[in-house]
Amino acid sequence: MRGPRLVVNLVLLAVALLFVAPLLWLVTASFDARGGLAAKVPGDFTLGNFGQILNWQVGGRPLVNGLFISAGTAIIAVIVAVLAAYPLSRYQLRFRRPFLYTILFTTGLPVTAIMVPVYGLFVRLELVDSLWGTTVFLAATALPMAIWMCKNFMDGIPVSLEEAAWVDGASSMQALRSIVLPLMAPGVAVVGIFTFISAWGNFFVPFVLLLDPDKMPASVGIFSFFGQNGLVAYGQLAAYSILYTTPVLALYLLVSRWLGGGFSMAGAVKA
């Protein structure tokens, strides 16, 4: 069995090498004063690329806009999803199954496919170029996955704890707030972070629904930068990419440490 084992290890190493190769450029070029498109050890090491990006117009405002949109999306989605998950998890409703199947099916719907009618809707509602409109729309598209995950987390909390609260005269919403929510806080955090990460990376939705360059989040801001300067200032493009990726990377590491790797996505698929 020595031979096959060696072959498998070599295949795995080759795959790892192929997967890491495109990433190298991002790191090397960002620290190189004369970075090109190929990954190489910076000949002229500098932090200047980051400095040039970090002004309000180029990097600052898009990152702040992105933070506003993504945090808003996460907060709205989490509140609405927790509220919806409660009756779905606790009561025997007649439409519970069809509703849950619809939710599960909608999690797979490619949002790209509905962007044209959504744009039409936004024109009617005069929401085009509105940060709030974009945020609420992103929250709505994040809801199916958020409701599904929240319901699964809530199912894991025994009902007997709430029953004691009802005996003491608490309403269901009071029980949700003071008993269920504290117990599922880690789950809520996971849903929030997951929603934040997908909103932070979403390019097509703000690209279509926002017009004013001053309102664009980092996903579109970095693309405009690529269009305007990307063909000359590769070092700055790489530096911008790293700045834009860091929050997502940090949040991902946080969640995966928490859940012991694999992210909750794999669990969501199995369920």
Binding site: P22, L26, F203
Partner: peptide, 30 residues
Amino acid sequence: VVGTVVVAAWVLPEVVAAFAIYAFLNAGGT
């Protein structure tokens, strides 16, 4: 090692992943 490297490409935002591949496959790329 393999898990981290493969997942790293997945965690990147879509546009950044596209830049990385753009640079990788370009005429003057890696």
